[in-house]
Amino acid sequence: MSTLIRPPPVDPSKSAIENVLELTQLSDIDPDLFTNTRPLWHPPGARGVYGGAVIAQCLSAAQRTVSKNFTIHSMHCYFVLAGNSEIPVIYHVEHVREGKSYATRTVQARQRGKVIFTTTMSFVREDSGGQVRVEHSTKMPVVPPPMEGNDDLRFPQGAEGPFQSQKVDILNNDSPHPHVKKTRQWIKARGEISPAGGHEAHLSALAYMSDSYFIGTIARVHKLWRYSSARAGNSKSTIDEEVLKKLLAMDDESLKRVPGIRDHDIQRLQRLRNGEDLSRETKPEVGMMVSLDHTIYFHNPREFKADEWMFTEMETPWAGDGRGLVFQRIFSRDGKLIASCVQEGVVRLKQPTDSKL
């Protein structure tokens, strides 16, 4: 069973992302215990549930244990084990500190008694910085605005996904140096987040979306192939075969709207569609890519809406030793920096002969 308690009907007064992230408080056991109200999504081909959902639900749980005048400003997370979408998640919030200006919480997400995810969060009291402050912020780059009614496909969720996105061309994509490239997209929660959700719902939605194609930045700037077919070699496919079949059935214009798929991906899908044997190709291919940790610094946390377009820009300063590091900045539509994120993950290439890696 994927939830501890039978899920209630979807609440039409809430946005899709609010329903996805809904928590049930287990007050009869412990007021600091929560569980997922609805099943968590397991992306096809992924090792476990979508990490953004666990990040966001940990934040939602912690926000329910602090005073309304305290707001999240940072969270530092570690992915410990892959989450199983068939098992309920139990979130335990620990009150680490109750200060006048700052409060600290840790949250552990557990399945069958094992920790699958842990995070430490710091909350700050509103207006605790004083009347005179040190202030500066980086500027949002000039990019084409989002186009209403022309959303990218949130593949494989499609129109059913809880948020929308529109990709922007990779900056410096022709450079031979991956570290100077920047991947960019517009994102927003689908529909309107309910007034009852308050700023907390917008922050949880932002946390959910922050994990979208994050560590995948490294594959994109290196132009690594991620979509192989079992018939294109003896090695196991790096993506679910059903997803690959859907990709192969799409026309080129539809493929261009799928976030994470670039021109070199489309070219190889075209070749697979034409029945070419790609088993002898030597181009590097992703063998394993999974997040290890995830950090979010929230700026101006009450001055944005996650159901309005936000611009994200990602770059990777380093990759090596089977890992990679990615930085992400998130801006509101009007150019205000609202979050800075960091993620490190395992990024291993398929090895042609050694299957022990």
Rank of each mutant, 00 (worst) to 15 (best):
residue 193 I to T: 05
residue 170 I to S: 01
residue 190 R to Q: 11
residue 173 N to V: 07
residue 168 V to R: 10
residue 219 A to E: 02
residue 224 L to G: 02
residue 245 K to W: 02
residue 170 I to Y: 03
residue 252 D to T: 12
residue 170 I to P: 01
residue 187 I to D: 02
residue 144 P to V: 11
residue 220 R to E: 08
residue 141 P to M: 07
residue 182 K to Q: 11
residue 143 V to P: 00
residue 146 P to W: 08
residue 232 A to I: 00
residue 148 E to L: 14
residue 174 D to I: 14
residue 165 S to V: 11
residue 148 E to N: 14
residue 202 H to A: 05
residue 202 H to K: 06
residue 184 R to Y: 00
residue 241 E to F: 06
residue 253 E to G: 02
residue 254 S to G: 00
residue 240 D to P: 03
residue 150 N to L: 14
residue 220 R to D: 06
residue 148 E to V: 15
residue 206 L to E: 01
residue 184 R to M: 13
residue 152 D to E: 10
residue 258 V to E: 01
residue 255 L to C: 06
residue 141 P to K: 10
residue 253 E to H: 08
residue 187 I to G: 02
residue 157 Q to A: 10
residue 207 A to Q: 02
residue 178 P to I: 04
residue 148 E to P: 04
residue 270 Q to W: 12
residue 159 A to H: 05
residue 208 Y to F: 15
residue 246 K to T: 11
residue 243 V to I: 08
residue 193 I to M: 09
residue 164 Q to P: 02
residue 252 D to F: 04
residue 213 Y to D: 11
residue 265 D to M: 06
residue 232 A to P: 01
residue 243 V to T: 06
residue 162 P to H: 05
residue 181 K to S: 00
residue 231 R to G: 01
residue 178 P to Y: 07
residue 190 R to T: 10
residue 200 E to D: 14
residue 251 D to E: 04
residue 199 H to N: 14
residue 237 S to F: 07
residue 189 A to H: 08
residue 209 M to G: 03
residue 245 K to C: 01
residue 276 E to Q: 11
residue 159 A to I: 13
residue 158 G to V: 04
residue 250 M to E: 06
residue 227 Y to I: 15
residue 176 P to W: 06
residue 142 V to T: 15
residue 176 P to Q: 08
residue 142 V to P: 00
residue 264 H to A: 03
residue 249 A to G: 04
residue 176 P to K: 12
residue 163 F to W: 11
residue 251 D to R: 12
residue 164 Q to G: 02
residue 196 A to Q: 15
residue 250 M to W: 07
residue 213 Y to W: 14
residue 186 W to R: 05
residue 202 H to Y: 08
